[in-house]
Design a protein around this nucleic acid. Structure first.
Lengths: 182, 182, 182, 182
DNA sequence: TATGAATGAGTGTTCATTCAT
DNA sequence: TATGAATGAACACTCATTCAT
């Protein structure tokens, strides 16, 4: 043997991500996940403590990376250069996430409103914005910061039905984001 | 005489809006709505055919206004001036909607994904963007258009925990939107 | 004026008969009846005391006629001639009933099991059979009697998908019935 | 070891059959079934996908046997001998079914009108009749065929309140059926 | 002769979760 | 490392019925 050691946990995560992205967290039932994996619901509970635990596990790599970014950000001066660098890091993060991840992220505010992980993510976002601008910067400046990050996410979805390629959409998002943080 | 005649329908709508905005459409049950109104669930069904019917009714004023805007838009040349005018109209629409409405709107993409009314609203949004830019405009241009409208919505929510007043947030959203379609 | 005097009651009966025959008594709701008549459910309650009251009213003409037949039957000798005469009367009754009525009759045993009117009708049937044969006649004789009457009802329905005309089906039912009591 | 392994599914079927036979399919609620079994409604859904699924499961042994009979019938010449043989097979089927089954069967036409399984059973019946007689046989002949099978069912119920024993009733039904198919 | 508004009790169904094996 | 069996709480929805107007 050697490094077998049940990939089931990973398979659950992958399937859950697929389905959460497709129908949303609330509308996806554990039954669906289990069925698509040809295991029983109870099996899910062997690997995770609850439904929420599954979604949390999906995000914790990302959250760690965001935390690292925040840590780095704390040591930087609040200059335009820093802001551009942050935008680029964030874009890379988004770009390297699986598509389901990005889709899920998009919905965090609404579908996962009452989940702790939702609150955690939003908290991180707020922190980043706070670290990017003075807390008493004008509303417009702060809004631009927020929309910069939002643009990167949005780019992947809002032009989906056009014939613009994914890479081009991503590039457009990054360009706009950079423009917004000036 | 005058305006008696059971305002229950309106009260249902108001309460539903409150709760949908607070917890999302899916997570709000008819029981909650009924209880908050001190009526039975069955009473809701006297006034509406289904849960979806309630949420639809909340949106249909707005949808009509968007349709009017779209109709107007079709007759305009695709100039910067038109774009600015549209942004202003849209901002006015958003500004005049009750806060719950705006919140609900924010979540249309995710919480109301499988509802016909969700699809309808997104379709309208796509139409507006298509009418604002050439269909073969560069991705960046199109994305800016989308983010312009998004900024107006977002302004109300993303800076909510700061000490910036609602009016100032709204103004910032409008300013950014104008800049983006500029 | 003169003989106006609301035909609503009759219209309710007609519509109820239609729907009861189509979907069965249980599966037909007062809402459906009311909607098809373009009146409110409450209007039904002005004309009838309950849902059961409606179905009872549909049958009471028929029950009266059956009672008359039973009264006549009591005075007859239990001869073949009497049996043939009864069969003919019953066939005429069935033939003159609206098709919905016959269909409903067919289902009395099952769909209206817990309704008093169902029990009443079955009771009448049993009485007729008892009056036709000695109570200690062999099982076969009694069964034939029952099946004779059943044939008349069944004829209208069981061959419905063939290309045999209604009149011919009815005639076949009568012929078989006569043969059975013969 | 041996035959442990939760007989719950079978117990659900037995109880459902009882209740369906007693009050009809529509009037029997899952709550009643569950209560009589001292389980929760949700337990029923562990074993069956829906209420209809339960009733379908009750019939599928019978349907298989009817299908076998039909298959056999297809290979036979349409002689009196074949008809008599069929009647005997059918009588055996009926005789070997639990009483609730027969009762339920009796009501298929009316209480289970909108259920697929109801349509399936009726379809089988029509097929048998078609295979028994030429499709252009006189109405009377076809009707006799139908009533032959009906007699076997009816015999068990119509004389139930007399003091005739079940076995004698069954025999009478068979005798009449044989007489009818000539 | 109706209607508008509402109710209480019920329906079938789905869910996340548990636990002995 | 799983499964079979079950639960309790909820859900959207429908029904026959009532009653003031």
């Amino acid at each position: 043997m050697g490094e077998r050691r049940s990939d089931t946990r990973e398979r659950i995560q992958a399937t859950a991500l697929e389905l959460f992205a497709e129908h949303g967290y609330e509308k996806t039932s554990l039954r669906e996940i289990a069925e698509r994996l040809h295991v029983t619901k109870a099996a899910l509970y062997y690997h995770f403590n609850s439904k929420e635990d599954i979604v949390v596990s999906l995000f914790d790599g990302l959250i760690a990376e965001i935390d690292a970014t925040i840590a780095w950000l704390r040591d930087q001066p609040r200059t335009t250069e820093t802001r551009r660098e942050l935008v680029q890091r964030y874009a890379r993060l988004a770009h390297d996430s699986p598509p389901g991840m990005r889709r899920l992220l998009q919905d965090v505010r609404s579908s996962m409103r009452e989940l702790s992980v939702g609150e955690q993510l939003q908290e991180r976002m707020r922190t980043m914005v706070r670290l990017l601008t003075d807390r008493d910067a004008p509303a417009l400046t702060q809004l631009k910061c927020v929309m910069a990050l939002a643009s990167i996410n949005a780019a992947m979805f809002v032009l989906q039905d056009t014939d613009i390629a994914a890479e081009e959409r991503h590039a457009a998002g990054l360009t706009l984001a950079l423009e917004l943080v000036g």
